[in-house]
Every structure is written in C-alpha cells, then in structure tokens.
C-alpha cells in the first residue's frame, strides 16, 4: 500500500505543474497539524511549498490526512485504508 501511495504522490508531483498556481492546497486532518507535521508534508511533496496551504480539521477522519490540490487528491487516511480493506475482501469472492 505504501508503494501505491508513493506512486500517487509521484504522479501528483508531476501533474501539479499544470495546475493553476491560484489553486490552494487543502490538508484535511483529524486535528490541527503542527509546524513539524506541515514541514514533513512539504518535504514529502516539495512542489506544494509554492501554494497557499490551508489545514482543515475533519473529525470524521480517524487518523492520517488528505491532501487536496485543485481537483487532485491524495488520501492518506485510515478511513481509506479501511475502505480498501473492505473492497479487497469483496473482491476476494
């Protein structure tokens, strides 16, 4: 799963160059992110440093975060992991 997420991040990094610079970056998390965590995110996705970053708290997220840039999104939440698990169990029929 980690490889899959890394591939998504790499793909998003390449696609971000064609996204309008006026788009803001929204990071949704279950709690307010600290500077340390924001830095780690910027290290993970260096291209977002040039964007206006907004942290939105969503209590429905169990853990992890969602990074939205324009119409693109990377879901790093436990919620999506559970959904993937459910999907894999269903596909295993």
């Amino acid at each position: 799963m980690d490889d899959d997420l890394r591939n998504q991040i790499d793909k998003l990094s390449k696609e971000i160059t064609i996204i309008n610079i006026k788009d803001k970056v929204t990071i949704m998390s279950p709690y307010k992110l600290g500077d340390n965590e924001m830095q780690k995110i910027k290290d993970l996705l260096p291209v977002i440093k040039n964007f206006d970053i907004v942290n939105v708290v969503d209590e429905n997220i169990y853990s992890g975060l969602i990074i939205k840039i324009g119409t693109k999104m990377i879901d790093l939440t436990l919620n999506s992991a559970l959904q993937n698990l459910r999907k894999k169990i269903y596909e295993g029929h």
Partner: peptide, 15 residues
C-alpha cells in the same frame, strides 16, 4: 495522541 503518532508513522513511511 494516537492520531498524531499514526499520522507521523504514515508520513515517515512515505518519506
């Protein structure tokens, strides 16, 4: 606290 640890773990693994 647990959420923070999990988030940190995810970010660390991806890095």
């Amino acid at each position: 606290e647990v959420q923070k640890k999990l988030t940190e773990h995810v970010l660390s693994n991806l890095q």
